[in-house]
Design a protein around this nucleic acid. Sequence first.
DNA 1: TATGAATGACACTAACAAGTATCATTATAT
DNA 2: ATATAATGATACTTGTTAGTGTCATTCATA
Lengths: 210, 210
Amino acid sequence: MTAHDPAHRVRKRGRPTASERVERRAQILEAALPIFLEHGYGNVTFDQLATAARVTKRTIYSYFDDKAGVFTAMVRSLATTVSSDAPDQDTLESLCTRIVYRLNSADLIGLHRLVIAESTRFPELAQTLHDNGDARHIARLADHIRAEFGQVAVPRAQPLFTLLLGEEHRKRLLGLLPPVSLAEAEDHARRALALLGLQSSKTTVPTQAE
Amino acid sequence: MTAHDPAHRVRKRGRPTASERVERRAQILEAALPIFLEHGYGNVTFDQLATAARVTKRTIYSYFDDKAGVFTAMVRSLATTVSSDAPDQDTLESLCTRIVYRLNSADLIGLHRLVIAESTRFPELAQTLHDNGDARHIARLADHIRAEFGQVAVPRAQPLFTLLLGEEHRKRLLGLLPPVSLAEAEDHARRALALLGLQSSKTTVPTQAE
DNA sequence: TATGAATGACACTAACAAGTATCATTATAT
DNA sequence: ATATAATGATACTTGTTAGTGTCATTCATA
């Protein structure tokens, strides 16, 4: 009833203003994300998307062809932002920590789960996610490794990435572990580096225990 | 298969014999597997399951409650056979090769994909798959590592398992790589062991080059 | 100011799928 | 033997959902 409460406001009818029109598409995708993450692509109905976005089905159809169109647009917009955060002045260890933390967040675990689930129907989304995710992460790891340890150590970039994800990431894909904490991510990154002999010279060598 | 080829024989009507009754349930699950693997749980209809199993919907309902019942029974029966092959007399390297080969087979990739996709709706299946899959594999790797390298090396069992899967397994979950060949599996296993310093004393140390 | 475009609200259609009913048929069980 | 249970074939009912139609409303644009 509180007509000014943005959470309960009933969207007014009629043609939107220019700014509203610009934002509408992004709002729809933003609203679709948690719906798809929670229920999975196949179980989401168009009405759910419309309700979540606080628009009608007709409006969504004016922006996208169908449910597949909303889904692919959402995944693409998310996938291309995965690698956008590029504070290039960090160390190998801090880069590893950020990768562990980011890839084990609830959103990215859910996105990965969605794309795996629909990789048969949307193979191009799988390719997009990998190109913008894993491939860029590995390339960036390789750059840092080359800078700190020389060209000879570069082949360890991909195994390092694999270890950064580790069994924990597999468990999270299966819903068997909660999202990682920052402290856990740091610890995990250090141990992965140690396993491959990639400890930074300036950093204390962490004990392998626990 | 054998005399009564299920692909060409028209199943007779009426109450099945005792042996038919025993086999019917397994046949339904066997027929359901490729259907679920190809289309994903949410997109499979009961009629598809019935057609694939060469029975009617009524019959399936006499064995299972609903589609979820067929799915969970199928996944459970498959998951419990994942770790059944136990030629305990092999080396660490041959064990690793078998793990790489098996977990990258089309069937297990598809099963894993299915369970990941439905982990929200069927969390107990995710737990079952992990308990009967990853957990047992890691335990067996730990046994071999302890026998060959002593207790101190046992903590490397889980990282080893992670490296055995590697980026390739992630790509296969996304449908970006075909199933692994036996030769590739061997090569991959050797390189993973070398990265963690777990080369067997009797084996030639493989070069790190790709 | 007048016309048209985009929207919300709501109803509608068509297709599809889950689950049930019926009947003839074949085997089991008593 | 006779009744009963399970099945195949087929049609049916019921619920859900994608997609469309209609109309009033609000704003853009000329």
